[in-house]
Design a protein around this nucleic acid. Sequence first.
DNA 1: ACGATTGGCTATTGACAATAGCCAAAAGGC
DNA 2: GCCTTTTGGCTATTGTCAATAGCCAATCGT
Lengths: 195, 195
Amino acid sequence: MPRAGLDREAVVREAVDAVDELGADGLTLALLASRLGVKAPSLYKHVEGLDHLRASVGVASKRELATHLERATVGHAGADAIRALADAYRAWAKDHPGRYPMTVVAPAADDAADVAESERLYRVVAGALRALRLEEDAEVDAIRALRACLHGFIGLETAGGFGLPDDVNRSYALLVDDAIASLERRAANAATPAG
Amino acid sequence: MPRAGLDREAVVREAVDAVDELGADGLTLALLASRLGVKAPSLYKHVEGLDHLRASVGVASKRELATHLERATVGHAGADAIRALADAYRAWAKDHPGRYPMTVVAPAADDAADVAESERLYRVVAGALRALRLEEDAEVDAIRALRACLHGFIGLETAGGFGLPDDVNRSYALLVDDAIASLERRAANAATPAG
DNA sequence: ACGATTGGCTATTGACAATAGCCAAAAGGC
DNA sequence: GCCTTTTGGCTATTGTCAATAGCCAATCGT
């Protein structure tokens, strides 16, 4: 019996590809094993089971998305940074519809890598809003608002929630413009409180 | 063998309750049968299988949500209607976290009831925006923007995506205020084109 | 070279969806 | 009130999947 030369990383990488192709629910150990030229029980030598494997795919996806967003926003500031973030976010989600939903779940508190990548995602959004110079609570509200707009649009789009044929890119651009304007207005109001 | 007196409606109703309690993935025919005092194969006399059953739960959920939103918005207009819609939407989602995600999926084209309830949901959102008197394309964009804001916030909230303890209600209220202001601005700009 | 560790494997269990086919309970004709 | 038909339960079975136990060969350390 020759060895396949697998290790944890190779298994997770193949799982990532499988989820990209088939969606999170399409990932089964039986399928994954066959793609790796191995029988299903062998995978337990490398990963702790399907749940842990899915969690690993989620962490890998958060890492990949965070890197993608960091690269897209570096060198941009202000409204420009927010627009770059919005476009990169939607592009990654459309390229990885199976994994995108995994990037929005709360990190498992006992998984340091998960917590770290989730914080990295938070920071890249916070970074795009830096130029607004918001005070602490207001920044949390602003990050939530921006994430909600982007995530909501992408979630509806990938769920097929937009039944009408009207140009989806135009709808998104308008939404992002409005979000930027609203957040800038929040910053301006905070700078000149009550007049 | 006494009969349980089931019919399709009773099965779907119990499935709705099960999804509310356990989430969409927690619904199994074995569990549902045991809750109904029956063995699993008996359910096939009333529903066509798990996929169809889930679809029925989805349609029932769209119907329920649409009714809830209609009741919440009736008698309101303008910004008031949008705020009422937003609050009712979030409240229903929080009351039914297991079923809420089923309400945002595209209807199956061959399921007339699904199409009808999805259109009803669309119309209640459109109704809340009526006072803005938007032109056709702009109305589609506006509905998409509003749905994205609400759905995105709720999706992140129920996914546990908001790790920080800051007041989530405040964040939502601010988001809704911004959305209303943005949509009103769209309407005003359309009314006075380029000047 | 040789012992320990590692990474495959087969066999098995248990949950589940789904189908086939049986049989009794309700429903309807007369 | 029978008798037939339809209906709604059931058991038995198949096939998929996750997971565990336990075997044995390939590789590695010395």
